[in-house]
Nucleic acid binder design. Structure first.
Lengths: 231, 231
DNA sequence: CCAAAAGTGTTTGCTCTACACCCATGG
DNA sequence: CCATGGGTGTAGAGCAAACACTTTTGG
């Protein structure tokens, strides 16, 4: 009878009853003025017309979910080649009042300099809103999705290198520390922080331009360790 | 034009072109003979007829994804009220040769005693296979899904209490330690382990029946801490 | 008395925390 | 010479690893 159920559902599907649609929604983070910000756009259609929402798109039959995310990034934000990762799949029955839409949420990280490089007009930059000041309504369950993304990057900042995705290739240690402090939401001790990330970075021989105080050294992220050659 | 794209996709959907179907696939873990085992059933239909596969079902329009998981557990394994959690959503275009199916994978944990209680015939127990001995083919991308589940519970065992889900309410510390050792895949030091989990358990006044050596004390999981009353 | 497994105290070593201090630049 | 922020060494707290040891049962 477990099989009968499966049989039923297979037929149910083939005979083309109504069934869920699948979309991706994207939580694109960057840093502005020392704050974590997220990309939001006012919706142009009902429901939630004019209300800020995450960028998203339906998943086409001929593309993987990751490809739908890449397409969404490219078509809606003109971004390419940035870090993204699956977050969670949201499937409450009433999350969209029109019809049943299951949303596979992703988060993405981009550095402010990459944003400017990709969009020299600076128009895209105006669509970012600080996550700690979102005292306005969001469409659908998008507030929940953003909160889920914030929680994820806070957690992953502790044991992965995602913080580097929010900085240019050249960065200083005070900058890197600021990123960690924003993601973790707490201040860090300078000396301890430097010891902890020492093995993830390489110093260049360049310094920042003097600015009323001691210039800081410029670092790069250490390349991912090669698998040991001999075995 | 981002809007035109959205418009197109909305119409694309409404006019009922082919679009992805959504299923849940379930990685149900338990412990047998000191090994982590997973529930698999031979498929009764093509494709992969006769090949072992995870239990799964299509997501109905009127149920949430979590509800689809509950229904799958109940209909296919006759299980109810056990721990489960979303794992990852798999959406490669060719993961199912028949048609495009996006699978929201979940993992679930059940203790061997609960399995027997729910299914006194013991039939369900025969469908579990040790994850470390899966030297046989699996249908679709189900091997990847199982591996994803194994990695997840190994990680979560370190900072959550999921290990308790694999034991009855009454357990001994050697039993609990064995669960952690299986999930983490490494031996633990008895004295250190006991100190570490001391604040998560409460001792009962009961002991196991003597068995050729010193009996062990029976413990229960400490109830989740109440939110402190005064504030 | 011995084997086997349960259960406990103590030492050691490491990591993270916190503080103290020095360095380079502009004014 | 001071203010500002960059950069570094070192002592102490806390946690975890490792070891040594005692206890209880059956044979």
């Amino acid at each position: 009878m477990a099989n009968g159920e499966r049989e039923f559902l297979l037929n149910y599907h083939k005979e083309d009853y109504d069934r869920p649609s699948v979309a991706v929604d994207l939580v694109l983070f960057t840093l502005q003025d020392g704050k974590l910000t997220v990309f939001l756009q006012p919706r142009e259609e009902h429901p939630y017309q004019g209300v800020l929402a995450l960028p998203g798109t339906f998943v086409d039959t001929r593309e993987s979910i990751d490809d739908a995310v890449r397409r969404c990034l490219l078509q809606k934000i003109r971004l390419d080649g940035i870090y993204f990762e699956q977050l969670y799949t949201f499937g409450a029955v009433d999350r969209d009042p029109r019809m049943r839409i299951i949303s596979v949420a992703y988060y993405a990280l981009v550095s402010a300099d990459k944003l400017l490089e990709m969009d020299p007009t600076g128009d895209v930059l105006t669509h970012f809103y600080p996550v700690c000041e979102m005292d306005f309504p969001l469409a659908f369950d998008h507030r929940t999705i953003v909160e889920c993304g914030v929680a994820r990057i806070a957690g992953k900042a502790e044991y992965t290198d995602i913080a580097f995705e929010l900085l240019p290739a050249d960065f200083t240690l005070p900058q890197l520390q600021a990123v960690y402090e924003i993601l973790l939401g707490k201040p860090l001790y300078k000396a301890n922080f430097r010891k902890k990330i020492a093995d993830k970075i390489v110093a260049t021989d360049r310094m920042t331009a003097p600015d009323g105080h001691r210039p800081s050294q410029i670092y790069n992220k250490k390349p991912a360790p090669e698998v040991s050659g001999d075995q």
